[in-house]
Design a protein around this nucleic acid. Structure first.
Lengths: 153, 153
DNA sequence: GTGTTTGCAAAGTGTTTGCAATTTA
DNA sequence: TAAATTGCAAACACTTTGCAAACAC
């Protein structure tokens, strides 16, 4: 099954040549082996330009349009998954009905406000999970997700 | 907006009159204010008849058909949500692409095998989460989900 | 009988995909 | 120029809904 839209996965890694005048995002994309196209740069700027973010495809698409960048929703989806495969984003299973992407790929956990669909980071090292049982035979733990669900007090 | 298919929510609770010959499920439904219809009894039997289960609508539908019960997929979805509102089930946000329902509504956590889409309970009291930060102003914690994601070792 | 529940088929939602046109290196 | 990327529109998977017929009490 050919995947013509994702050939960069077989592309050898760029060599991180950050030329003067090129943006941080540009370097980041090259470093991940992704061509710094107009759309990826625009989305990357929105995603990584200002601190950690939690975002859905639709919201990101809307932001891009609002910023005057012409990007299709399909490209937003594709780009999010490319970024995710490249390790630039993490996908969060929070809601079931929509995919959230987190620009903070380090180990941390989340508050989730059910009604508002609002996500917040919990400081990385405040939460500690103890008493983990052994994973079943032949399995190992890849990651632990903790979601603290909030409602109005 | 009328919701003709969910009027039982305003129905007064049944009085749990478990007559001899009526099933445990029947009593459970009545206790939740749900009429014990053929479909609900069949689905309830599949869900609660044998220990704790994690199940998706499609799988439950397939099981019902396999058991010779005629139920539509729409009814399975509706029933799962009715059961959930009645507190008989809990919905799990695990995968994003599909809704899992858990017949164990007590506080416990899960192993999730990513590739297989397989879910397992973790003994209720083995895991302990420490260092929870205060929820933001005006919010309170409704529930904490811990998902331990597994991959092949 | 009255109000609840069901099933169907249609509509929705969020997401993915095939492919021709465009862009990048 | 060759290969990667984009955008569109159509296809998707999963879920919900309107409404008339069937059912429970």
């Amino acid at each position: 099954m050919s995947r013509p839209q994702d050939p960069q996965e077989t592309t050898k890694q760029g060599m991180e040549r950050v030329c003067p005048g090129e943006s941080r995002i540009d370097a980041r994309l090259r470093g991940a082996g992704l061509r710094p196209t107009r759309q990826r740069l625009a989305l990357g700027e929105l995603l990584f330009g200002s601190g950690d973010r939690h975002i859905t495809a639709e919201v990101l698409h809307a932001e891009a349009l609002a910023a005057g960048e012409q990007v299709s929703l399909a490209t937003v989806y594709n780009t999010l998954h490319q970024f995710k495969r490249a390790g630039l984003l993490r996908e969060l299973a929070i809601d079931g009905t929509r995919a959230y992407f987190d620009t903070n790929t380090s180990n941390h956990n989340h508050f989730f406000v059910e009604e508002a669909g609002e996500l917040m980071d919990i400081e990385s090292n405040s939460i500690r999970v103890d008493g983990l049982p052994e994973p079943p035979e032949g399995m190992k733990i890849s990651h632990i997700d903790v979601v603290v669900r909030l409602v109005k007090a």
